[in-house]
Design a protein around this nucleic acid. Structure first.
Lengths: 228, 228
DNA sequence: TCCATATTTCGATGATAGTCGAATTATTTA
DNA sequence: TAAATAATTCGACTATCATCGAAATATGGA
């Protein structure tokens, strides 16, 4: 529960080769699941868990749960800086080439995440909606602008009906392949439904991967300037 | 024998509280004897020795032997910087107030060191000779300039005779109270002898301390602009 | 519901490393 | 030359900690 670790604590965190490897991976600023960090540091998942718990305790990293995954990222920016200072004095520590276990490109491109869109497409969709000024992030929530209301309605989505559903209206969801957020919640669900309806996307067999149709590429480009 | 330690090595050095305490003391840039560092870090001399040997091995500190004393100082400036970065993130570690064991003021002012001058007077003498351009330091040696040759001869010192002696002509000696160098070797010896001869200084009883006479203060001021 | 996957907790083990007592070496001082 | 001081090496003890097997928990997908 300690808030700001002292020099010795930080130093001891870095001094362990496994933790140094984990931190080196996390230095990219993105979120990584525990398993991947274990693989990168060349240790068993339990061991990585042990280290991550330790770093979590002193707020060196933060945790975001996402289903059965637990995404870790560097929390304290000052610590990242101190880490960089030390790393600058030496050659890179040995870290396994960081290959994603899931190498399926189609899964990375587009897939369902529960009942909404994920993958490159999911993230680009979120980015585009923000860019156009239809939605914006406020801390951990997503809010819809006046322009957004008009946009969604014109796209054939009845926001008033969506809001009535007994579930979260809209929230962010961390994308495991992109390591960025995409749109989840009821709004995320009706969006993917509408895309299916327009036949912009279609399911692939035996996988959560989703294929983007030619019509889909065209439509997404015209609607939100998304090129994919 | 490793030349540049890596991040983990540096971090592990700092991570130990005793070493952190030692390094904090050494951060003043001066040389400290092993025993004082042990006292400051609140550990037994053997333990300090163990830590210092470790730091010596990776060139974090350097060693200068001086009789039965061994003076350590921070060697690598980049490491001192990294250390500062980490220390800046935290409150100071507990370090015993660093009192010199020898608190005798007269010893600090002027004393014999083997057969030459030490203490404030010894260091000021060295400084003055450098300032006047009579001697200069080159790495670990002291060299005499043309002006210096003239000066010493006019002060009644026969350099040709001094050079003939079967001992080091002149070298630097680390001053334990000032933590800076003073002049040692044959030249250091004839200098103190000449000062005795002129009655600028005189021995005190039962101690290595030396008293500077009024004539001495006057003479040193006139000769080398030394005020003490 | 059942199985697979992701992760953690528990428990045991093995290695490392900081510590200090005792003895040794080196040097100064008397 | 002998005693005192500074520092080290050696050896042993202890505690900490990283590691991993086994089991538990949680969640997803079928």
């Amino acid at each position: 529960m300690s808030s700001s670790p002292d020099a010795s604590t930080i130093a001891s965190l870095i001094s362990d080769p496994s933790r140094a490897a984990i931190l080196t991976v996390l230095m990219d600023g993105r979120s990584h699941p525990a398993g991947d960090l274990a693989y990168a540091a060349n240790i068993k998942p339990q061991t990585a868990s042990f280290h991550l718990a330790k770093m979590l305790e002193v707020n060196v990293v933060s945790l975001e749960k996402q289903g059965r995954h637990r995404y870790y990222r560097i929390e304290n920016f000052e610590i990242a800086k101190a880490l960089e200072t030390l790393l600058a004095l030496s050659p890179q520590p040995k870290v396994n080439s960081f290959k994603q276990v899931t190498e399926n490109e189609s899964l990375r491109l587009a897939r369902t995440c529960y009942d909404h869109l994920a993958g490159k497409l999911g993230v680009k969709l979120m980015d585009a909606l923000v860019d156009k000024g239809y939605i914006f992030e406020k801390s951990n929530d997503i809010l819809i602008t006046k322009d957004g209301e008009i946009f969604f309605e014109s796209f054939g989505i009845r926001l008033d009906l969506v809001r009535k559903k007994r579930r979260s209206f809209v929230h962010k969801c961390l994308d495991w392949s992109e390591r960025r957020h995409h749109i989840a919640g009821a709004l995320g669900h009706v969006l993917i439904e509408r895309f299916f309806e327009l036949q912009w996307i279609e399911r692939m067999e035996k996988t959560r991967a989703i294929r983007i149709t030619p019509a889909g590429r065209k439509g997404l480009n015209k609607l939100l300037s998304i090129t994919i």
